[in-house]
Simulated scan of single mutants.
Amino acid sequence: MKNKKVIELLGETILPGESRTIDVEIAKLHTMTKVKVPVIIERSKIDGPTVLFSACLHGDEINGTEIVRQIIRKQINKPKRGTIICIPIINIFGFLNQTREFPDKRDLNRVFPGSKKGSLASRFAHFLVTEIIPKVDYAVDFHAGGASRFNAPQIRIAPNSPELKELATVFNSPFTLYSKNIKGSFRNASTNLGVKMLLFEGGKSLDLNDMITDDGYQGAKRFLNHLNMLNPKKEIKTPKEKSIFIEKSSWIRANYSGMFHGIVKIGSLVNKGEILATISDPFGKVEHKLKAPNTGFIINVNDAPIVYQGDAVFHISTKLEIEN
């Protein structure tokens, strides 16, 4: 079926078969230098859904930017049908400063749906939910762990949504976590507007990791193939193992302050009582063992060399979904 529908986006008309990059200017730097956020749009001549791939909602989570960059560079964003919108860097201000927040110190992922007359972060959130999201049917938003905490590649979805579960199964990251939408988040605002969004987590802030990048990139191809949007010439890799669905999980916190020596690898299945790490003093006198409180998968590891008592150092599954 030919696509005769006209898409109006950011004040411009994108016709079927067109490629367009629109530079969005929300605000200038305090030096009056213009800062623009490129929005890259590819339309097929054949009608179909609209998919958004976005990253760097937090300015220091650059691994997601690399995933979206590869989607563009390898022309995965040129759809067989429908439209693909890519925003490799949402928080351009944080990206420039290598910080999580906007210059107003606000977390963009907590101010949605935003306000046209609010703070800088709030204004950008308002732009996304008024100009971009209403045009979108499906989305994958790429994130990474913060504060030296390395996430195993994983998809997060809201519970009790068969369609999201199906999409997560297709994306097929090693883990899928059921996670309620947080008020003020991009995912929550998108859901309220009818968008089916997967939230990808992998790696850590200010870091590029080939394993994480490949998982996100390959998952995006499977996602598009499921929607019959992937160019048939593009190869699809299917992991040997199916995604492990995690219903509940919890943080393991440091029981002492000191130098942190992790033992277990990310993604490992550990048994209750197994030693996960040691925490020692710098003077060679004391060494404490940190043990697993339950049997489960390690889905986040703290890479920090020094921790304080109470710091979150491991994220472990506590309940897996049992297949019928």
Rank of each mutant, 00 (worst) to 15 (best):
G11C: 14
E321A: 13
P79L: 14
Y308F: 11
A27W: 12
W251I: 10
N181E: 14
K265V: 05
R149G: 02
E101V: 13
K237H: 12
T130R: 13
S280V: 04
L290Q: 10
G94H: 01
A147W: 09
I132V: 15
G310C: 07
F175M: 04
D311W: 07
N63T: 12
D107F: 02
N172Y: 01
F223R: 04
G258Q: 04
P113A: 05
K233F: 04
K36A: 15
F53Q: 02
R253C: 10
I14K: 02
I46C: 01
I322S: 12
K74I: 08
I133E: 03
I316F: 00
P88S: 11
I155K: 01
L224V: 08
S148Q: 08
L208V: 14
G262Y: 01
Y308C: 11
N209D: 15
E8T: 13
G118T: 09
D210F: 13
K319C: 08
E66R: 13
F297C: 09
I72Q: 12
D311L: 07
N77K: 09
S148A: 09
G59N: 00
P134R: 09
L276I: 07
E235S: 13
D214G: 03
D23N: 14
A220M: 03
N3T: 06
L108S: 02
E25L: 14
I41P: 03
K5I: 12
E101M: 12
V307K: 06
I62N: 05
E241R: 11
I322R: 12
L29G: 07
L208Q: 11
